[in-house]
Design a protein around this nucleic acid. Structure first.
Lengths: 237, 237
DNA sequence: GCCATAACGAGAGCACTGCTCTTGCTTTTT
DNA sequence: AAAAAGCAAGAGCAGTGCTCTCGTTATGGC
């Protein structure tokens, strides 16, 4: 049992090592990751890697999950809370707007530090790739964090009064909010989601070269402008 | 010369045919397009394709340019104008907000009709792929269209007065606006660009599965909500 | 402690890819 | 009519994901 523990541990280490090398390859060669090249770097036969990951897709899925978690952790650290933190748990005195901006800038910094990992999770999914169930949990960390920050700000009265929204989409937002962020009115769920959408679009546009030949100088200002716009729609003051 | 014209014409036809088959493959197999498979479908040797496209990247670039133009044309048709139309040229009596919503919904419809073409231009760029100069013209059609719609609406007094923006990013927006959309104040250039960013993020999120397990019912309503938010930031009324 | 069993690593092999080069043929140009 | 250029086909190279087989090593039950 302890011996078997040794086996399991060395296997876990090997798995981590493969992922680490794969991440390194990803950072240089981009998305078309070569399993054989990874194996070569590790000094092992390519067939041996299949003992740890059944396919290249499975390796990519593992990297995707790790990337989502890494991004989520970075945003949460900057916000000083998680999606499930009780309101005002850290009580660091920051407003919702400050936390929102800190979290979104942290997401951008994370993406700039490793563009290929961002591309891995927010770029075009590989053709036949159907996101496994394991990914959707980590994938929602950032959006749930934003929603929580907004919900807590709402609880502290930091959000301007606006007319509630109506219609079919509002109904759906109500159901979504009920499930993930109870206590937040549909308008806030909708604008928080909008902020997340805007966030991903803003970072992707910057990273994927969509801003070339237009915004070249002040890209941090560009991003700040996007996020302050999103915050304005939420009503954060 | 007429004979040479024949040669040139059959070459152009062949080029189009290759692109058409490649597009068909793209729609089924996704981004990892196989040049050999395209050649097989055309009943020719793979080496023959290289007479028309020097590499797989070059074929992809051609498809990218076509996709940008196709998307741009769809949005322009819905808006009833182009980026360079004189204000009120069509004079169809529609407001700027109506044109903005029509154009953006047309972009979404275009993307939904052929998700892989959208992924080709707004998904993660292939690793070493540096967008050639030829692509940036077609790539800017949609954003320039939005800017033009906003500028014309501004000229007709359809935009709420807001405080002008300041700072380094505002300076850069002023320069960008000067070059591409003269007559529009920096705040409008900035919010028009924001709308474009939000647009691309909203469509990508929908297409790339980011909305799974949250917004499932009313995705058109979801998109409309995003675009009305963007229009609100612009000040379209 | 012994031994069947399971996990593991290596290598060969298959079908596929992008791309190059050579060879023969056709069309255009001089 | 001769020369030049364009074109298509096939072989070939290096690389890929993945499978299968075959020795080796570690693990757990007796």
């Amino acid at each position: 049992m302890s011996a078997s523990g040794v086996r399991a541990r060395v296997r876990a280490e090997m798995t981590e090592e493969i992922k680490a090398v794969a991440r390194r390859h990803l950072a240089t060669d981009g998305a078309n990751l070569s399993l054989r090249a990874v194996a070569r770097d590790l000094g092992m036969a390519s067939s041996a890697v299949y003992r740890y990951f059944a396919s290249r897709d499975e390796l990519l899925t593992a990297l995707i999950i790790d990337a989502y978690n890494s991004l989520g952790a970075a945003a949460e650290a900057a916000a000083g809370q998680t999606a499930t933190s009780p309101p005002d748990d850290p009580a660091d005195g920051r407003t919702g707007l400050e936390r929102f901006l800190a979290a979104t800038h942290a997401a951008r910094d994370w993406a700039l530090a490793d563009p290929h990992q961002w591309a891995l999770i927010y770029g075009s999914p590989v053709p036949g790739y159907e996101a496994p169930q394991d990914t959707i949990g980590p994938a929602t960390r950032v959006v749930l964090l934003i929603a929580a920050v907004v919900r807590d700000a709402y609880g502290r009265g930091e959000i301007e009064e606006r007319e509630p929204i109506t219609g079919r989409y509002a109904e759906e937002l109500a159901a979504v909010g009920e499930r993930f962020t109870p206590g937040a009115p549909p308008r806030l769920v909708g604008t928080a989601l909008s902020a997340y959408i805007h966030l991903s679009g803003a970072i992707s546009a910057e990273l994927f070269g969509q801003l070339k030949a237009s915004v070249e100088e002040d890209r941090r200002g560009y991003f700040e402008f996007q996020m302050r716009g999103a915050a304005h729609l939420i009503g954060l003051k």
